[in-house]
Nucleic acid binder design. Structure first.
Lengths: 236, 236
DNA sequence: CGGTACGTTGAGTCATATCAACCATAGTGG
DNA sequence: CCACTATGGTTGATATGACTCAACGTACCG
């Protein structure tokens, strides 16, 4: 696709395609959104927003992948979640009216729309079913956070790594050769699981020896999902 | 207080006293709440609701303390948060329309009001500033969950224990002898920190040797907050 | 008095972190 | 074109934090 072919996506179409939260808006609200939003493009490594800053709006992802993380001790990142097409990020800070508690960095080149806080707040005030959907979203994320807390507190690194691999396949799918669609460095994997880079490397090559995964640089293919599920101790 | 003296609390007064989320309701909504709510009393050890069940409403705490936890591997509890006067619990499941992802158990005898889901949903539909407050609450909790994830993933047990002690003092305060108001078993402490009971015991007695805390059975007094802050690595 | 729940301590083990060295690759600038 | 540097990946050696298991003390309760 040539540069001049890139079009600002239409919210109406995008929200339906992606199933984003905006599909609950009324036509005139969608129009307002289309008018007020600011379309932006970012490349791998770019930062959308940073922990500790006040944020004047939030982002809706149209394409690409973004990692949302907190910076802990010695600058070590803890990845909280990923965002892809249809997801919104930074809405937490906007709604709680707090400083950003996370940073967001591009993993795969992306196109996003920036939407000013006031628009979100006004939709909540005028469209109660939209507000309810937002609540549903926030509460769902809260449930996932709770599970993650329990996992990190109780499971071993080995168990968590297996779980994360399965989770990544579910969330991002695989390409035509069955390799995981999302490409992460070993360090990023470690920063999801909550461990050291070397541990991820060692465990991955163990998984490889056990014929659970196939490795090709950053590309990972799951060869034995049942086996990984067993290791990860998920029966829910 | 004799049994017959116990009164069903009035939502209007309770919400103002406790600063609960219901203070944003309009008078006629408060009346409806008063009418629809179901006042209940529970004793230490009682269970309010359990993980995996569908919940038909949520609880507003009038007095006492409740622990909210997930059950992980081998039935080990991970305490997610505590609820005290003015807090609401189980609203997550109600709003996300999911099964309960946690259980709730009484730590200190409590009086609570049970409020049917429909009431909450109807308030959201009719009172947008209330909806916004609920969103604020959920998003705030989400931020706390994110911090907790990062802590558990990156800090040592020693650091986390120090942090939790400080946090408990902040949240529940101390009695006239400076002892922490909330009384937890060692196992419960371990289930917040995410460690083994024995580890908590050992670390607490280390803290005692280092004159950081005073111990008297379950009663804990913080003697040197600065020292504990230093150990806990909190500078935020 | 036996039972149950909680607290404490010691000893041994193991998973995981840390430290260090090394290789591969790609981009940079002179 | 080559040296230089940065980044990421891998492996080995070593250290240690934290868990597990087991024994035992204590307190409370019916």
């Amino acid at each position: 696709m040539k540069q001049q072919d890139i079009q600002v996506p239409l919210c109406e179409r995008c929200s339906l395609e992606s199933g984003s939260i905006f599909k609950h808006l009324k036509p005139d609200e969608i129009d307002l959104l289309n008018y007020e939003k600011d379309f932006r493009q970012y490349k791998r490594g770019d930062i959308l927003y940073q922990e500790g800053n006040r944020i004047s709006g939030f982002f809706c992802i149209n394409s690409g992948i973004i990692k949302v993380f907190k910076t802990g001790l010695d600058g070590k990142e803890q990845i909280i979640r990923f965002a892809k097409k249809g997801d919104i990020i930074a809405y937490r800070s906007v709604l709680s009216n707090e400083l950003a508690c996370t940073s967001a960095k591009v993993i795969e080149d992306c196109q996003v729309c920036f939407i000013p806080s006031e628009i979100l707040i006004s939709f909540i005030k005028t469209n109660s079913s939209y507000a309810l959907e937002l609540l549903k979203l926030a509460c769902h994320e809260l449930g996932e956070a709770n599970s993650f807390i329990t996992d990190i507190a109780q499971k071993t690194v080995r168990e968590r790594l297996a779980e994360i691999l399965l989770l990544l396949v579910n969330e991002f799918g695989v390409d035509d050769q069955q390799f995981l669609q999302i490409s992460l460095t070993r360090e990023e994997l470690a920063n999801i699981v909550g461990t050291a880079t070397e541990s991820v490397i060692r465990l991955l090559s163990e998984f490889k020896s056990d014929k659970l995964v196939e490795l090709n640089g950053r590309k990972i293919k799951l060869l034995n999902k049942k086996g990984l599920e067993k290791i990860s101790n998920v029966f829910n």
